[in-house]
Design a binder for these strands. Sequence first.
DNA 1: TTGATATTGATAACACAATATCATATAAGG
DNA 2: CCTTATATGATATTGTGTTATCAATATCAA
Lengths: 125, 125
Amino acid sequence: MQRDTSQRRAIRRALEDAGRPLGALEVLEASKGDAPGLGIATVYRNIKALLKEGDISEVALPGEPPRYEAAGKDHHHHFRCERCEKVFELGGACLPDLKNALPRGFRVTSHEVLVHGVCAVCAKK
Amino acid sequence: MQRDTSQRRAIRRALEDAGRPLGALEVLEASKGDAPGLGIATVYRNIKALLKEGDISEVALPGEPPRYEAAGKDHHHHFRCERCEKVFELGGACLPDLKNALPRGFRVTSHEVLVHGVCAVCAKK
DNA sequence: TTGATATTGATAACACAATATCATATAAGG
DNA sequence: CCTTATATGATATTGTGTTATCAATATCAA
């Protein structure tokens, strides 16, 4: 159990090559080149499997369905273009001292930053 | 059109007094003291009306339904307790220089920070 | 107080993403 | 090359949050 299918390869490849987090439909589109006729159910199935195996990780966004990106990257945050709605990866640039802003007794386990704006491609149009 | 009902007063009051963003069901619970028998549809209706009037603003969170808070506050971010799932307001503490982290040609319009952790009440248990 | 009408509460209906179903296709060991 | 159990594709179903419907109620101007 766990066969090496062309669909699974195409989906893994699409996520590895994208360089940015993809939603389920984006994965479908990006994978169709390598796996014609690919169905959305298969995309969801394989996303779930890849998550369980730890090959990809989920990028949750406010108000929209999650995207997925290759796992194992350094700490980073994301940028969402409000025109094309694509999400991009941002390197470096993290938070200053959070502790000052925290109420007494609060304990931090993680944080996430989402920057909104217009990407380079959309800005030119 | 636009009548002053006890339900509308209760809902507005609940959001103003909460001191933290509330979800629709939290608004329902918090308003029931002032408006017994309040229905969820009325909560949604009034949230929508208060949004349109600019009295409250939406706080979108990854992977869950939006919360709402009184409008007009200074720039701030939010903390979500992973135990009780309440969301709290964080003052101050903002981002350093975002520009360095941005790819060329990207334009920023806003950003949001969500801190995950355990709130003071839950940490004591 | 009265009457017109906005508002409410209960609940049906909707929208959307994600999962389940199931017949068919296919990978992989023998 | 066969066999068989897993994977796939099409689509029905689910689940959750929100909105629509509608009879009953309550606001507020006259």
